[in-house]
Amino acid sequence: MPSNVRVIKPSDFLRADPDGQVDLPAALQLLQRLAAAAAALDEYEVLIDIRHTIGRLRTDELQQMAAALAGFEDTFQRKTAVLCPPDRFENGHLFSLLAAQQGFGRVRAFLDYETAMEWLLGT
């Protein structure tokens, strides 16, 4: 699952835009790349855009992803929006609930870019 991680200034903003087939190792690698990109930033928000990915993670894989957030705590204590296609919104929402159980209550799933950005920017 190729991904593109960009840092956009001002008020630093991380955007991950993976495409291709969804699989757990690639998804975990994406979290690691996001955390590495965030390491040098002071203030930032995170948008993970999975609208162009193919497939879906199983419930147990979503649980592993949520548990993996603890390894990147500094990054994912920030607001993190997961932008989902309509047919996988349930997975994105489940991930946000599982993340909250792990202590990461600022992860939310969204169906459209504008709503995600409004939430990220606090408007």
Score class of each variant (00 low, 15 high):
60 D>T: 03
94 L>S: 14
100 A>I: 01
12 D>C: 03
100 A>Q: 14
121 L>M: 09
102 Q>F: 02
84 C>Y: 04
82 V>L: 15
120 L>N: 13
46 V>N: 15
109 A>L: 05
86 P>N: 10
55 G>M: 05
111 L>H: 08
107 V>M: 13
61 E>G: 00
33 R>E: 15
61 E>P: 09
8 I>T: 15
38 A>P: 04
107 V>L: 11
93 H>L: 09
94 L>D: 12
27 A>C: 14
3 S>V: 04
46 V>M: 06
112 D>Y: 06
58 R>Y: 04
16 A>T: 04
80 T>L: 09
70 A>K: 14
17 D>N: 11
25 P>H: 06
93 H>Y: 06
79 K>L: 08
17 D>Y: 01
84 C>V: 06
25 P>E: 11
9 K>S: 13
21 Q>N: 05
36 A>G: 12
32 Q>M: 01
23 D>W: 02
56 R>E: 06
57 L>C: 04
15 R>S: 13
16 A>N: 12
46 V>R: 12
110 F>V: 05
39 A>P: 02
47 L>A: 10
17 D>T: 10
101 Q>I: 00
111 L>R: 13
50 I>H: 07
95 F>Q: 12
5 V>P: 14
29 Q>Y: 02
20 G>H: 11
31 L>Q: 13
81 A>Y: 05
19 D>T: 09
49 D>V: 00
63 Q>Y: 02
60 D>Y: 03
9 K>P: 12
25 P>Q: 05
75 T>E: 00
70 A>Y: 00
21 Q>Y: 08
9 K>T: 04
64 Q>R: 14
116 A>N: 11
33 R>W: 03
15 R>D: 11
23 D>F: 02
108 R>K: 13
10 P>N: 10
95 F>T: 11
116 A>E: 11
78 R>D: 07
